Simulated assay, not measured.
Amino acid sequence: MPLSEHEQRMLEQMERALYAEDPKFATALEGSGLRTYTRRRVYQAAAGFLVGIGLLMAGVMIPDQIWISLVGFVVMLGCAVLAVTGWRKAPKPGDRPAAQGAAGGPAGRQPRQKRSMMNRIEDRWQRRRDEQGH
């Protein structure tokens, strides 16, 4: 459901206030750092998957060393899970995932500080709604 014009303006005001208050944090919310992080994570998982295949093959070729194959399988499975979860969490190039950036972005903030900022934003939002009589 698209936002109304009033909601769009309110959102733009909140974005401008966020950029004015903490530009570094606002930039982290844009998602470019998150995209890079998830892409790197998927590449690392793919490399780990190849290492797991190598261990699996080595365990099959070396007699009486089946445990190497088991370790290779576990490495492959773990890396496949990491790659799939990283791929699903990766934002699309045109998206602006503010909620995802706040939760997992490399902003370097303490959770208490994020919450207090969110509380301030919510308080401002509530004040504006009250001023307009909604």
Score class of each variant (00 low, 15 high):
Asp123Ser: 15
Tyr19Asn: 06
Pro93Tyr: 07
Arg109Thr: 09
Arg35Pro: 01
Gln100Cys: 04
Gly101Cys: 00
Arg120Pro: 06
Trp67Arg: 02
Ile62Asn: 02
Arg35Asn: 02
Thr38Ile: 06
Arg96Asn: 10
Val71Ile: 14
Ser69His: 04
Ala45Tyr: 04
Gln44Ala: 15
Ser32Pro: 05
Arg115Gly: 03
Gln113Asn: 12
Ser32Asn: 10
Leu29His: 01
Ala98Pro: 06
Asp95Ile: 01
Arg41Ala: 14
Ala46Leu: 14
Pro106Leu: 09
Leu82Val: 12
Asn119Ser: 14
Met14Gly: 06
Arg96Thr: 05
Asp95Pro: 03
Thr36Val: 10
Tyr43Leu: 11
Glu21Phe: 07
Arg112Met: 08
Lys89Phe: 02
His134Ser: 12
Ala26Cys: 10
Gln44Tyr: 10
Arg124Gly: 09
Thr27Ser: 13
Glu5Met: 12
Arg35Leu: 02
Gln8Gly: 05
Glu12Pro: 07
Glu30Ser: 08
Ser69Asp: 03
Thr85Gln: 02
Lys89Gln: 04
Trp125Lys: 07
Pro23Cys: 03
Met61Lys: 09
Ala80Thr: 05
Glu21Asp: 12
Thr85Asn: 01
Arg41Lys: 15
Pro97Val: 00
Ala103Leu: 15
Thr85Ala: 02
His6Lys: 15
Gln13Arg: 09
Gly94Ala: 15
Ser69Gln: 05
Phe73Met: 08
Gln65Tyr: 08
Arg127Gly: 01
Arg120Ala: 15
Glu15Gly: 03
Val42Phe: 05
Ala83Leu: 02
Leu11Tyr: 05
Leu82Ser: 12
Arg16Gly: 08
Ile121Asn: 02
Gln110Pro: 05
Met1Glu: 11
Arg41Ser: 11
Pro97Asn: 01
Leu18Trp: 06
Leu3Ala: 14
Gly48Ile: 03
Lys92Arg: 15
Ile66Trp: 07
Val74Asp: 14
Met10Thr: 07
Leu56Val: 09
Leu55Trp: 11
Tyr19Leu: 06
Asp95Tyr: 14
Arg112Lys: 15
Arg16Thr: 13
Asp130Lys: 11
Val75Met: 07
Met10Glu: 12
Ala28Ile: 03
Ala102Tyr: 00
Trp67Ile: 02
Pro2Lys: 13
Pro97Ala: 03
Gly94Thr: 09
Ala103Gln: 15
Gln8Ile: 12
Tyr19Thr: 04
Ile62Gln: 04
Ser32His: 09
Arg40Val: 14
Met57Ala: 13
Gly33Glu: 05
Leu82Gln: 11
Arg124Cys: 09
Glu30Ala: 04
Ile66Glu: 12
Glu21Asn: 03
Arg128Gln: 13
Ser69Pro: 03
Gln132Cys: 06
Phe25Ala: 01
Arg96Trp: 05
Phe73Ala: 07
Pro106Ala: 07
Gly101Met: 00
Ala83Asp: 03
Ile53Met: 10
Thr36Trp: 10
Ala26Glu: 03
Arg9Trp: 11
Lys24Val: 11
Ala90His: 00
Gly133Cys: 10
Asp95His: 08
Gln44His: 11
Ile53Arg: 06
Arg129Asn: 11
Leu55Met: 13
Leu18Glu: 01
Gly48Ala: 09
Met14Pro: 00
Leu82Asn: 12
Arg39Leu: 08
Gly33His: 07
Leu18Val: 01
Ala47Gln: 13
Val71Met: 10
Arg124Asn: 05
Gly54Val: 02
Leu70Phe: 11
Pro93Lys: 09
Gly78Ala: 13
Ala47Cys: 09
Gln44Lys: 14
Gly86Pro: 01
Ala90Ile: 00
Arg16Phe: 07
Arg40Glu: 07
Val81Thr: 07
Leu50Gly: 10
